[in-house]
Design a protein around this nucleic acid. Structure first.
Lengths: 341, 341
DNA sequence: ACGCGTTACTGACGCGCGTTACTGTCCCCC
DNA sequence: GGGGGACAGTAACGCGCGTCAGTAACGCGT
C-alpha cells in the first residue's frame, strides 16, 4: 500500500507553503489567494489524490465531525425496530448536510454500559443522539450536566436537554378517535412496551385522553402491556380475550399488532368484522398485513433527520428548540370498520 | 464545559513523565514499571477522569480503530431490509471484541457516490465492510487494488477481496427441495431483487439446481423478478398468476413474499392449500404472517459478526479465509403443505 | 576501584494539520 | 523621497499522544 500524500507533498508540488495549501483547500474567505496560485494548489492536490488526514484535522481543529447514534435497546427491541433503518437514513442525510459522519453505538441494556460516554470524553464524536434512553441512566445525566452536545430521540423528562420525538400522545389519541368515530365504545389497548419507556406511557396517555374526551370511563381491565415484539403482542391479546369483551383495540406498535391479530385469528375472531385494530408506526409491511393495517404513521426518516439537524445546529452554537415534536398521520386501511349494529 | 484533562495532567498529578503515563495506561508488557508507580498513575487518571483523546491517538498511532459499514442500497431497499438491525448488532459486537467502533455510511445508489472511498483515504476508518456492492463499482475496485482492508458482505465476483455471505445457493436449493418433497412439481420463483444483484442470481441458481436435480425442466415462464419490497412482490405474483399455473412458489425474500401472498389472496388462491409458499430471510415477523411463513433462515447477527471478525483479523495481519459462507436453515411453518392429490 | 548489567524512568521527536503572527514586495499618493 | 497600505505568502507553534533512544542510579562481581 502506497504512502498517502500529505499536505506537504501538495505544497511541494505546487511550489507553495503548506499554509497556503491549507488556506486554499479550506476555502478560507478571509485570506486572499490569487486564482492562479489557487489553481496550482488544487491541481497538485487532485493529481496526488490528496485527502486530508482526518485524525490530524480533528486534533488540530478540536472537532471530530462525527455524530454518534447511541441505541439503548435490547436485542429483541433492535430486531423488531422496523423503523431503525429509516431513522438511520434520515440521520445520515442530516449529518451529511452538515459535514458530519455517523458512528453507531449499540448498548446492551442489561447492566450499566457506559461505553458511550467515552465517545464524547475521548472526543471520538462531537455530539450524541441518544435513542430511547431510560430515564434513570446516570451516566447520561452526567454527560448532560457536563454540557456535552446531546439530543435525545424520544423523551427524557425533567432534564434540560434537547429532544426530538414524534407526537406520541396526539398520534395515539387520533388512533382511538378514529375507532370512536366508527362507533366503537369498548376499546382495548395493548402498549408497545413496558411503561418504564416514556413512549409507551405517552401512547397510553393518548388512548386515555381520547376516551376521556368521549366521556368513556377508562377501565384497566382493557389495558395490557406488550414488550416490543410480535410474540408479546400475541400473549397480550390472549390475556385480553381471556378476561373481557371488546370490539376494537388500539395496539401501540405494528409489530405487536401483528402478533395480536394472530391471537385473534386463533380465537376465531375476525379483523375487522369482530374486532377493529389500529396499530402504530406504519412499518413498511403494515399495508401488506391481512387485513392491511390501519395505523399511525411515524415519520421515521424525518425523525432521524430532525435529530441530526438539531445536533448539527447545536454544534454550530445556534439556538435550537428545546423540544421538537413531529406530527403523525393516521393511515386508514382495512383493519378497522364501523361497529356492527 | 471544563477542559478535558490530558496525559500531561495525569503525569503531573502522579509525579511522573508523560511517557510513563502512556506506558502504564497502554499496559505495555515490554516495559517494566513497579506496581507502586503504576498505581499512582492509575489513581491519578481515575481521579481526573482522564480519557485519552481519540484523534491524538489515531494520529500518533496511525490507526483509527474504526470500522465503517458501507450500505450500498436504495431507500426502498434499506427500508425493507429487515435484517439490517441484526447485522449491525453482529458487526458491532465483533468490533467491540476487537477494540473497534463502528461508523455507518449510507450511499444513494443513483449516480456514483464515492464518498466512502474517502473514509479510507482520509484514514477515517481502518477498514470497510461493504454490503451488497454492485459488481461494476469502479471506486470499490480501485480501493481493493490499492490494498485497503475491505470485506464484502455479499459477493463480488472476479475480484480478489475477502467476502462473507450466507450460502444463498444452498438455502434456495433447500427451500425448493422442501417443496419438491411435498409433491409439488410446478414451482414458480420470484426473485428478491433484479438479477444485477448477485444474491438474487444465487438464490435463483439454487432454485434451478434443485429443479434440475429432480429432473424437472426449468421454465422461464415460471420465473419473475421482484425488487426488494412488498409492492414489487405483489406485482410479481400478479404477473405469474396472469400467465401460468403453478402449485407452489419460492419467493426469495420474506418481504416480497408477503406482497406475493397478498396478491394470491386477492386472486382467491389460498396459502398453502392452493399454493405453497417458501420465503427467504426469516425476518422476525415471518412467523406471524398468515399463514406463518415457511422460510430460509438467514443468520443475520452471525453474518454481521463474521464480517466484523474477518475485518478485525485482516487488520491484525492475520490470515483469513477468502470467502466465508454461513449456513442457512429451513424453517418449516404453515405456508407450505403437501400437494393436493 | 572499576566495569557491567539492570531497573526505573524521561527528553524529545514525529504524526499531519489549522492557525497566528509575521515578512517582504510592490505601488500609490502626498 | 518616504510613509503607508494592500498584496502574497510563510515560519513556526500547538493539538495530544506513542515511542525510541537515552540517562541516572544502583547493585554486584572481581
Amino acid at each position: 500500500m502506497l504512502k498517502r500524500p500529505t499536505s506537504a507533498d501538495v505544497a511541494a508540488m505546487a511550489g507553495v507553503s503548506r499554509t497556503t495549501v491549507s488556506f486554499v483547500l479550506n476555502r478560507r474567505a478571509d485570506v486572499k489567494i490569487p486564482d492562479e496560485t489557487r489553481k496550482r494548489v488544487v491541481d497538485a492536490a487532485v493529481q496526488l489524490g490528496y485527502q486530508p488526514n482526518a485524525s490530524a484535522r480533528q486534533l488540530a481543529g478540536g472537532r471530530s465531525h462525527i455524530l454518534a447514534l447511541v441505541l439503548h435497546q435490547s436485542p429483541e427491541q433492535v430486531a423488531s425496530d422496523a423503523v431503525l433503518a429509516e431513522t438511520l437514513r434520515g440521520l445520515s442525510a442530516a449529518a451529511r448536510e452538515g459535514g458530519f459522519r455517523v458512528m453507531v453505538e449499540l448498548l446492551a441494556p442489561d447492566g450499566p454500559d457506559t461505553s458511550y460516554s467515552s465517545l464524547l470524553r475521548a472526543q471520538h464524536a462531537d455530539g450524541l443522539i441518544v435513542s430511547g434512553p431510560r430515564s434513570d441512566d446516570p451516566s447520561l445525566l452526567e454527560l448532560v450536566r457536563d454540557g456535552f452536545p446531546i439530543v435525545i430521540q424520544g423523551s427524557f423528562p425533567d432534564v434540560a436537554v434537547q429532544s426530538v420525538d414524534v407526537d406520541n400522545v396526539a398520534g395515539a389519541r387520533g388512533a382511538v378517535e378514529h375507532l370512536l368515530s366508527l362507533g366503537h365504545r369498548r376499546i382495548a389497548c395493548i402498549t408497545n412496551a413496558p411503561l418504564v419507556y416514556t413512549a409507551a406511557q405517552e401512547r397510553l396517555a393518548g388512548y386515555t385522553q381520547a376516551l376521556a374526551a368521549a366521556g368513556i370511563e377508562c377501565e384497566s381491565i382493557l389495558i395490557t402491556e406488550a414488550d416490543f415484539d410480535a410474540p408479546s403482542g400475541h400473549l397480550a391479546m390472549a390475556r385480553l380475550l381471556a378476561r373481557t369483551e371488546f370490539d376494537a383495540a388500539f395496539v401501540a406498535s405494528d409489530v405487536v399488532a401483528l402478533g395480536a391479530i394472530g391471537a385473534l385469528r386463533e380465537a376465531g375472531r375476525r379483523v375487522p368484522d369482530d374486532v377493529s385494530i389500529v396499530g402504530f408506526d406504519d412499518i413498511p409491511l403494515a399495508a401488506y398485513f391481512d387485513p392491511p393495517l390501519t395505523t399511525v404513521r411515524l415519520p421515521a426518516f424525518e425523525l432521524g433527520q430532525a435529530a441530526g439537524r438539531a445536533l448539527v445546529e447545536r454544534l454550530a452554537d445556534r439556538a435550537i428548540p428545546h423540544r421538537t415534536l413531529l406530527p403523525t398521520e393516521l393511515m386508514v386501511r382495512g383493519s378497522t370498520t364501523r361497529r356492527r349494529a
